[in-house]
Amino acid sequence: MSEEAIRYEASHIQVLEGWEAIRKRPGMYVGSTGERGLHQLVFEVAGRSVREALSGRPGPIDVTLTPGGGVRVADDGPGVPVEAAGGTEGPALEALLTSPHAGTALNSRHAVAVSLFGMGPCVTTALSSRLTAEVRREGVRWVQEYVRGVAVAPPSAAGPATGSGTAIAFRADTDIFGTAECSFDVLAERFRELAFLNRGLDISLIDERPPSGPRSERFWFPGGARDFVAFLEARPDVPVPPDVIGFEREDEGMQGSVEVALRWCDAREERVRSFANSQPTPYGGTHEAGFRDGVAAAVNAYARQRRLLEAADPDLSADRIGEGLTAVVSVKLDRPEFHGATCGELGGAAVRACVGEAVREHLSTWLEGHPAQATAVVERIVRGACQG
C-alpha cells in the first residue's frame, strides 16, 4: 500500500453541518430515499402542528397532497413567530426551518413522536427542491421561500392577514427521492392513530391527486382509546359497544398519565396495542407488562370471589386471559425511558407498578358493577383454561 493511500491528515476530514449533512446522507434522517422517506418529510412538518395543538392551542390541522408531488400542512394556531427568538441570530421561523430540534418539546408528555430522531422541519427543508412557509400573525401575512435547504431571502411581509396560523408547502427533491409518491393510506393510518391517542386532536388528510376527484378523511375521535378499540374490532361506523372498558388516570408516581381501553370478544387472538407519548411500542415494555399484571390480578380475584375458580385451582395465566382481548394501552410521560434508539420498547420500573395498579383497580370496579357481563367473560376464560 502506498504512502499516499495510508496518509491520514486533518485535511482529509470533511465536516458537514445543517442542510449539507442532511442532503449528503438523507437516509440517516428520514429512513430511506423512497416512499418511507417521503412520509417522514410530511410527519416532520405535521409534528410541529400536532405538538402546538396539544400544548393548549387546539385547532384543525389540514394535510393536503397536491398534484405533482407537493404537500401542504396548515394549521390555525398562533403562527410561528417571525422575529428573533431564543439564542438564534436569525428569525424564529428560519430557526425552525433550518435548525435541528428547533421547536421540539423533548422530555414532555406533549412531545408527540412523529419524527424519527426529533430533528423537526429542518429535515424537510433540506430535502425539498422548494419549500414555502406562510405565517399569519398579528394581522400580517409573512412568506419565506427555501430552495434545497437554503433561504432565498428573509421572511417578508406580503400584506394583511385575518386570523392566525402557519402553512408549510413543500415539494420533495426528485434528485433524492426519484419518482416515489406519498401513500394516502400510510399517512392516514398514522394520523388516525394520533387522533385516537390524543382526544380533541383534529386532523384532515386531503388528496387532490386522483383524476376522479379529491379524496379526504377527517380524524377526530372524542372517545379516545375506547374509539380505538372499536376501530380495531372493525366497528368504525357504529357506536362504541357498552362493554368496552376505558379509563384515564394521572399518576405522579410515574410522572405522567395512562389511558387504557379493553374488551373481550369471541375471537381467540389477542390484539394489544401499546404506545408511549403517542409513539407505537411494538416490543411492549413496562406499560404493557403493567397492563397485563393488572388484568390478571383483577380477573383472578373476581374468579375466586365468585367461585369460578376453586382454592386448589392455579391462577389463570396471562395467555388465557388474553384470548379474545382487544386493548389499547397509552402512557404519556414527562421523562420516558426507552430501551434502544428506535424507542420500540418502554422502560421505567415505576411505570409498570403504576399502570398495573390503575388497571387492577378500574377493571375490578367494572367487573363488580357489571356482574352479568363480567361472569360471562370470566367463565369463558375459565372454560378455555380447563379445555386447554
Rank of each mutant, 00 (worst) to 15 (best):
P314A: 10
A113P: 00
R57F: 14
V299T: 06
R271H: 14
V240C: 13
V147K: 06
N277E: 08
A358C: 05
L93D: 11
G223T: 13
D293A: 01
S128F: 10
H362V: 04
S257N: 03
R7G: 08
L367H: 11
P67K: 05
G118C: 09
S156N: 02
V260Y: 09
A301K: 08
P371S: 09
S108V: 00
L325E: 05
E288I: 08
L205W: 06
A374Y: 08
E233K: 06
V140P: 03
V45K: 02
D185Y: 05
R36H: 11
P280W: 02
F191E: 00
A327K: 05
F170V: 07
D202N: 14
Y302E: 12
S49G: 02
R171P: 00
A301D: 12
V150N: 01
F228E: 06
V82K: 04
S204E: 15
S32L: 04
E250Q: 09
I13P: 02
R148Y: 01
T125L: 00
D251Q: 11
S156H: 09
D75T: 04
L38F: 07
T365K: 11
R23N: 06
P78D: 13
D315R: 11
V377Q: 08
R192A: 15
I203E: 06
E259M: 01
E259R: 14
G223Q: 12
R25K: 09
S330W: 10
A126Q: 01
E248N: 08
Q14P: 00
R215V: 15
A296H: 03
E357L: 12
V114D: 13
G224H: 04
E233N: 13
G178A: 11
A267R: 15
V50Q: 07
V42H: 05
D315P: 12
A372T: 14
N198G: 07
T179D: 15
D207L: 10
M28N: 13
R307G: 04
R307V: 10
P214V: 12
S55V: 01
G163H: 05
V272T: 15
A374E: 07
V150T: 14
L201F: 02
P160A: 15
E269A: 15
E270W: 01
G70W: 07
A21N: 09
A267P: 00
E89A: 15
G322A: 08
P241A: 13
L333E: 02
A161N: 10
A261Y: 01
P91L: 07
D227E: 15
P242G: 08
M254E: 09
C354L: 02
G347F: 06
H287L: 04
D251A: 14
R136D: 09
I381F: 04
P100R: 06
S49F: 00
